[in-house]
């Protein structure tokens, strides 16, 4: 299981991508991350909720209560218009970063 600092720096983007696709609740997000990465990366609940706090404060995501499940109502997260623009920005930034790092990571025998 990979849990490097590199991924930690991109948790916002990982979570935003999942919420971008559709509104989701906390456990659904952590499960989806493990599923898509074949369990190579698992997000810790503590990190997940720190990201929710941060993004909600910046107005990038919003939350609302949905259906009832174990022990209460699920809180769903929804990306805002600002969030969509922010995420597009992040994708462009990642493309640039990838290019720069690849200059140094590739081509060595």
């Amino acid at each position: 299981m990979i849990s490097s600092d590199v991924i930690r720096g991109h948790l916002d983007s990982i979570i935003l991508r999942l919420i971008y696709e559709k509104d989701r609740y906390g456990y659904e997000i952590s499960k989806e991350i493990s599923l898509r990465t074949n369990n190579q990366f698992q997000i810790k609940e503590a990190s997940l909720y720190a990201v929710f706090q941060r993004l909600e404060k910046k107005g990038i995501i919003e939350s609302y209560f949905g259906d009832i499940s174990y022990g209460g109502k699920r809180r769903y997260y929804k990306i805002t218009t600002l969030g969509k623009a922010y995420f597009k920005e992040k994708i462009a930034e990642w493309e640039e970063t990838k290019k720069i790092i690849n200059i140094f990571m590739e081509g060595l025998e």
């Binding site: 906390g26 456990y27 952590s30 609940e45 909720y49 022990g71 209460g72 699920r74 809180r75």
Partner: peptide
């Protein structure tokens, strides 16, 4: 939220 999330897990 965390209690609910962990409960589901």
């Amino acid at each position: 939220d965390i209690k609910q999330n962990l409960g589901e897990k």
